[in-house]
Computed example of a mutant assay.
Amino acid sequence: MSEQLREDLPKVIEELEKKCKEHPNSVMAFHHLGLVYMKAGRIPEAIQALERAIEIDDLSSESMINLGAIYFGQGDLDKAQELNEKALSVNADSAQAHANLGLIWQQRNDFDKAIQCYEKAIQHDPKLASTWINLTAVLTMKGEDDRAVAAARKGLELSPDSALGHNNLAVALYFKGSFTDSKTHLDKAKELGYSVDPNFVSSLQSKLA
Rank of each mutant, 00 (worst) to 15 (best):
D76F: 04
L16E: 04
V149T: 13
D146P: 00
H185R: 07
E62C: 00
D125Q: 12
Q81H: 03
A40E: 06
T180F: 15
L135K: 11
Q4W: 10
W105Q: 12
D57G: 04
L35Y: 07
I13F: 06
A92C: 07
I54L: 00
A80E: 04
A92H: 14
L67T: 05
E119N: 07
S182E: 14
A163S: 15
H23T: 12
A114L: 06
F111P: 00
Q96E: 15
S89W: 02
L208F: 09
A97K: 01
L164M: 13
E17Q: 15
E17W: 04
A92S: 12
Y37P: 00
L9P: 00
L50M: 01
K127F: 14
A163G: 08
L139D: 01
N109I: 02
L77E: 04
D197W: 09
N66L: 07
R42M: 15
A80T: 06
N199K: 11
R42K: 15
K39Y: 04
A152C: 11
F72Y: 15
M38H: 09
K11V: 12
K11A: 11
R6C: 03
V201H: 05
E7S: 15
K79V: 00
P160T: 03
P44W: 07
L186P: 05
L128R: 13
E191P: 06
N167D: 10
A152Q: 01
S94F: 04
K188I: 08
S182F: 00
G75L: 03
E191D: 14
R147E: 13
E22G: 08
N25R: 15
I56H: 08
W105S: 13
S94I: 08
V171G: 09
G34C: 07
S162H: 01
G73M: 08
K21S: 14
D181Y: 05
D58Y: 02
A148V: 02
W132F: 09
G34F: 02
K154C: 04
E3P: 12
L16P: 02
L77Y: 08
E17I: 01
I47P: 01
L186V: 12
D197T: 07
D58A: 04
K19N: 12
D93Y: 14
E119W: 03
